[in-house]
Amino acid sequence: MSGGVEIPVVVSDIEQATPTVRRFRLTAASGQPLPHFAAGSHVVVMMESGERIIRNAYSLVDRAEDGSSYSIGVLKTRDSRGGSRFMHERVEVGSRLKISMPVNLFPVFAPGRRHLLVAGGIGVTPIYAMADELKRQGADYEIHYAVRDEAHGAFVGELRERHGDRLTLYRSDLSEVLAVREILPGQPFGTHLYVCGPQGMIDAVLEGGREAGWPKEHLHSEHFQAPPSGDPFSARLAKAGITCEVRSDQSLLEALEEAGVDAPFLCRGGACGQCEVAVVDADGELVHNDHYLSEDERSSGRKIMLCVSRLKGRELVLDL
């Protein structure tokens, strides 16, 4: 079982939200309404780049009132696999893409008494949807959003319009720092915090939360990451009898897909556990980059997550 249902979409609008972020409006090619999604969800966007298909996960920003479209925000980066570059350079209005069904690995803790949404840079995309949902529910929430400057803050105007005083912006050009220790004190008992942004920011916020005495169960983060690059290696599938080479700029999962293997996946970010595969043999050292396996499972050397983890060595033999 691989990623499941694929929905053909047409790019109906592209907005240059900031110098480096574009918002793409994806309209269902069928004319049928797209499924509703729960705030915090992402879709995997499939881009046909010549012979290969690039698959990148993007958080959903919103869904048109009539269900005809979703929007996603894409930061232009030099990601080694080229998904972001493809979206910025090759995709135009009218381009056809495919997306997966929405998957939510970053849910709002519904029984929470109050919600603190913390975003850094492009991490604002799921936070945007969560804020909308909390507003709709009449829940109590605050948004804290760190940007380089006003021009580099995607969706700042919209967020301010929708959420007014609930939004606090931190501009690094004005030396404004989103300091966790300043926003955490005084929050009512039963408050939950959600953070999405660069890994360094997530780590700092989570640590700041613990430092402020918050239980870890009240601190939520989007562990979403692009597959890290690394040294090339060979992957052999013991059951299928296939061997393929994993280039340094692609993930193990991507290499298997390129070799025509219908491997399981869901989030492609090391969070969901769907692509867990048993390791038969490894000539080298497993490099685990996921947020899913336990310490024991990692040290056993018996399991690997195809989407983000790799081998530092010669050959990896998988039970596939």
Partner: peptide, 28 residues
């Protein structure tokens, strides 16, 4: 306020009742 940690000690039913009440305030 958050930053407070809740501790409960007593019989099983007492613990259960306190935790159930805390949960209605959003406490995990």
């Amino acid at each position: 306020k958050m930053g407070a940690r809740l501790y409960v000690a007593g019989t099983e039913s007492f613990i259960g009742e306190v935790i159930a009440k805390a949960a209605t305030y959003g406490v995990v």
